[in-house]
């Protein structure tokens, strides 16, 4: 997994998001994006089929406690299905690109 700042308020996360270490890396990057008072966050996840529960919990906390508006663009249908099963498509403004 690697993360790039692809635009203002936007992170692109390449590769599979698998482990607690990936969660830590994502959290650190997001902190850098929103730490300057930015309340809009876009996550592009083109390849990963998964999202650990630790990342999901952190994003929900950002949205519902810290009032960060989140948009998510994903590329793998399995991840879309997972987020649908968890009733999070609307919560994270999920768009499937493929």
């Amino acid at each position: 997994m690697n993360i790039e700042r692809s635009a203002a308020g936007e992170l692109t996360i390449h590769g599979n998001i698998k482990s607690i270490d990936d969660y830590t890396a994502i959290k650190n990057q997001i902190t850098g994006v929103i730490g300057t008072g930015n309340h809009d966050l876009t996550l592009r996840i083109p390849e990963s089929f998964s999202l650990p529960s630790s990342v999901i919990g952190y994003l929900l906390k950002l949205k519902n406690r810290d009032n960060v508006r989140i948009r998510m663009t994903i590329g793998d249908r399995r991840l879309h299905e997972l987020l649908s099963d968890l009733n999070l498509l609307g919560e994270f403004g999920v768009t499937l690109t493929s």
Partner: peptide, 18 residues
């Protein structure tokens, strides 16, 4: 019921997905 105000509790659902 794991609503969006719950930031934990989804692990078993993910395990079952995979």
């Amino acid at each position: 019921d794991i609503g969006v105000q719950r930031f934990q509790g989804r692990g078993i659902t993910l395990i079952r997905s995979y």
